[in-house]
Design a protein around this nucleic acid. Structure first.
Lengths: 272, 272
DNA sequence: CGATTTGTTGACCGGTGTCAATGTGGGTGG
DNA sequence: CCACCCACATTGACACCGGTCAACAAATCG
């Protein structure tokens, strides 16, 4: 039996965390935030695994996650699915659709999520007289790109355990800024199969890595809840450095990177 | 002896390919393009391996590659360097610095490159009365993000040969739109060490993959020049990845992605 | 011409994918 | 309420891709 898609007219008090988040990256006048908030309609609750927009679609609206989880994914020619990113409350995962229109990937709910939708038309007319707000949204899409770059580093340079640790660590950090981490515990309703698709690993290996984390008392991921057992290494630094060093404790050498001595023919200096 | 950094006052006739490229993604009035062109100053020729901006820097200007090559990279905590993307004539690889300011990665010349610099101040004042142009630049940064997503798919889902094939294939395509592919041949002055850092592989393995491509008559990468011998098999060799999974025959279906029958409790439909 | 970087090749083995079998919990229908 | 079922999680055996080490060749540069 399909869950009902409840529709609400306005965003509720608890949904305002989204506005707080926008202001984390940009200074915005109250009026701008209010204008943006006023065009969020409708608000819906979507069930798990529902495709919000599909690759190839033309966007006509974008959404903001008020609560719950979503993920972006893409299917390669060989049929393997790659999960590109996970999204949490406060994220606008298809904001890029405003300038780009054509979706290059799927956006799907990872779990029941409360979504606010914003029509592109309405958004355009709100942005037109508010360059500061437009700039803030541009910035949001760039933060998005920044996370993609970090994810590339993650896939390309880290051990499998390191990748997993990074995923959890990044998520913890993002959830924490939204106040969604309590007692070093947070909701993350993911299957190992999806973890595998995100990390580019086999399901079996994902399972083994999680086992290791459990037996070594690092973290536990069970029943849709992540419990960080050794949070010291996490909380010590915002950029997870200690966390990662600890886990990838194998190779500290610098691979294929030559530091040229100063004064060589090939520039080591800086373009001004 | 360091090569001289020649400085020119204006961009030359051959540099205008950049403007053509901007118009590929957006419809722009002549006046807008002219305004943008007018603030490119100075134009410099930088030698190989010169850092243009470094991770952590505050951007005060951005650059446009008029000719030559550059790459973006990031060093992970374990010391491994990940190359995030390669950039060619027409690209503005640090445009994101305009809204974001703080660089999250390095930008370096891969080879001698002719770069035009644009001061952020000047750019802001050109963009302020030209929302269409501003939108076009936003779009450029989103195309950038799109390529990053594809690169994630590449790293996460393809075999090593497939990854290499994809890299060359993407580059071919981008160079072709700039008219830089002649006779299925193009300049790409890269070392195997850098290829390794881009693909997340060891240098030795990169070498072996290139050997395979050579002996199988797919492509040849030598002396800074890529020669495509069999571009059909190249593009399908990203698919050649599938030879492993195809041998196990059964699955054209998507791995770890279940299509639920309609009417189940978990949605398969589309959020409208 | 020597020095340094880059490319090439072989031997070895550890990390991961694949296959296959089994356990487990929650939902569903009788 | 129970029995079944299905998705998901877990575990072991085994093969092989790809990293590491090491030595050498070739190209490039001063």
């Amino acid at each position: 039996m399909a869950r009902k898609l409840k529709t609400f007219q306005t965003i509720s008090r608890s949904d305002l965390a989204w506005c707080r988040k926008l202001r984390l990256h940009s200074e915005l006048p109250d009026e701008n935030v209010a204008a943006l908030r006023s065009i969020v309609s409708p608000v819906r609750v979507l069930p798990e695994d529902l495709v919000i927009v599909r690759e190839g679609d033309l966007s006509t609206q974008c959404c903001v996650i008020l609560s719950g989880f979503a993920y972006r994914s893409k299917v390669a020619e060989n049929g393997k699915r790659q999960i590109l990113s996970f999204h949490i409350a406060g994220d606008m995962p298809d904001l890029q659709g405003l300038p780009l229109k054509r979706m290059d990937h799927d956006l799907t709910t990872l779990w029941e999520a409360r979504l606010g939708f914003i029509k592109h038309e309405a958004l355009e007319s709100v942005l037109e007289p508010r360059p500061t707000l437009a700039r803030a949204l541009w910035r949001e899409t760039l933060v998005d790109a920044l996370l993609f770059r970090q994810w590339i580093v993650n896939l390309g340079t880290r051990s499998t355990a390191g990748r997993m640790a990074y995923l959890i660590g990044e998520l913890r950090q993002r959830l924490a800024t939204m106040g969604l981490v309590v007692n070093e515990q947070f909701d993350f309703p993911i299957t190992q199969s999806k973890l595998a698709d995100a990390l580019g690993l086999s399901i079996v290996h994902v399972n083994r890595v999680l086992q290791t984390f459990r037996t070594e008392g690092i973290l536990d991921l069970k029943r849709r809840v992540v419990t960080l057992k050794d949070s010291k290494r996490l909380s010590s630094s915002a950029d997870l450095t200690a966390w990662r060093t600890m886990l990838s404790a194998r190779k500290i050498e610098i691979r294929s990177r030559r530091i040229r001595p100063a004064g060589q023919s090939k520039g080591t200096g800086r373009a001004g």
